[in-house]
């Protein structure tokens, strides 16, 4: 059983490889689609590129070689995770990205837990208390939140909770000059994390709330719930032991699909809150026209999505025995 499980997960990961390859191909040709000399595009248009950097770019992309050879070289570099050099930051791109990965993972992880957790909770409440004032209030809030741009939520949170009330810092991941490790540091980071995490989770929380409510209503109408009632179980027992777990499955599926969208959202939230993750790096790259760095981030975030999807699949197998035992998804 354990073996079947591992095999299934491995299969899902391997499934992602052609997709990653496709992203490499797209990255490769995207640069060449850009108007003008590829080296110029890669170096940025601000003219700050030195001849040395231009030479380095030509060498890295082998721009004077035939296209197929350029591609082969590009692939070779990617295999050893050599994404090139960022002139702006004066560092290897892979290093830069690795440095920023942790902050993004922290933000995304917190937001996912928040949005899925509260989405499931609110959606379940709205379904169990269907057609009550409480459920109407939850659903109206969800519909409005679902229409709200992420960056605007972030700015509104800054105006209210950082600038007016002064409860939270406006930006950054830690107070400058504060201790850099230990418990105090963790508290400091957590304090900085509150607003960006809430801002990023808002939209997804609304999405999961709506989905969870629909799923829960459907589950509560199913035959096995009637069986559970006919057994004489209490309604809380029915909701928690029988309905909830079944109703969560579509939400988990959606959460897996939304990982890639959430990464996009984190670019926006990180640039709003100056949260030093991949998103802020992308924003900086955008401003300095550091396209090579931008493409590196795109490449890496795609890998992140593939990996996260594999993790979601593992969680899936824990929740649904039909997948664990049959090695495939069932309706």
């Amino acid at each position: 059983m354990w073996f079947a499980n591992a095999k299934y997960v491995l299969g899902r990961v391997l499934h992602g490889i052609p997709i990653i390859l496709a992203i490499v191909v797209v990255n490769f040709f995207l640069i060449r689609l850009a108007p003008g000399d590829a080296a110029q595009v890669l170096a940025g248009e601000s003219g700050a590129a030195t001849a040395e950097y231009m030479r380095q770019i030509r060498e890295q992309f082998g721009l004077d070689q035939p296209l197929w050879l350029q591609f082969v070289n590009y692939m070779k570099n990617l295999l050893v995770f050599d994404l090139g050099f960022s002139f702006r930051h004066n560092r290897e791109i892979s290093e830069l990205i690795m440095d920023r990965l942790g902050a993004t993972a922290l933000l995304m992880g917190t937001s996912m837990v928040l949005s899925i957790g509260f989405g499931i909770l609110l959606g379940a409440i709205a379904a169990v208390r269907d057609r009550t004032l409480l459920s109407h209030v939850i659903m109206i809030l969800a519909i409005v939140t679902y229409a709200t741009p992420l960056f605007w939520v972030g700015l509104m949170l800054i105006i209210v909770f950082a600038l007016n009330l002064g409860w939270f810092p406006t930006s950054g991941i830690a107070t400058i000059g504060a201790p850099v490790d230990g418990f105090e540091y963790a508290i400091d980071v957590a304090h900085h994390l509150v607003l960006p995490a809430i801002a990023l989770s808002f939209f997804y929380m609304a999405l999961y709330t709506r989905l969870m409510r629909a799923s829960m209503l459907e589950t509560l109408g199913q035959d096995f719930i009637k069986t559970a009632r006919a057994k004489g179980l209490s309604s809380s027992n029915i909701v928690f032991r029988h309905a909830l777990r079944n109703a969560i499955i579509p939400v988990l599926t959606m959460a897996g699909v939304q990982v890639s969208a959430m990464l996009g959202g984190s670019v926006i939230i990180e640039s709003v809150f100056g949260w030093p993750g991949l998103g802020l790096l992308a924003y900086e790259a955008l401003f300095s026209r550091d396209l090579n760095l931008l493409l590196g981030i795109f490449f890496l975030s795609s890998i992140l999505v593939v990996l996260t999807n594999a993790i979601v699949d593992v969680i899936y197998t824990l929740v649904d025995p039909r997948i664990r035992l049959n090695g495939g998804r069932h309706a």
């Binding site: 096995f224 009637k226 004489g232 929740v319």
Partner: peptide, 24 residues
């Protein structure tokens, strides 16, 4: 009534395929 259901009076439903919780 909960104490009666499943204890004094039980019920068997029409659809065996859907009458059981798929995840338990």
């Amino acid at each position: 009534m909960r104490a009666v259901r499943g204890k004094d009076i039980s019920m068997v439903f029409q659809e065996p395929m859907t009458s059981l919780n798929p995840l338990m």
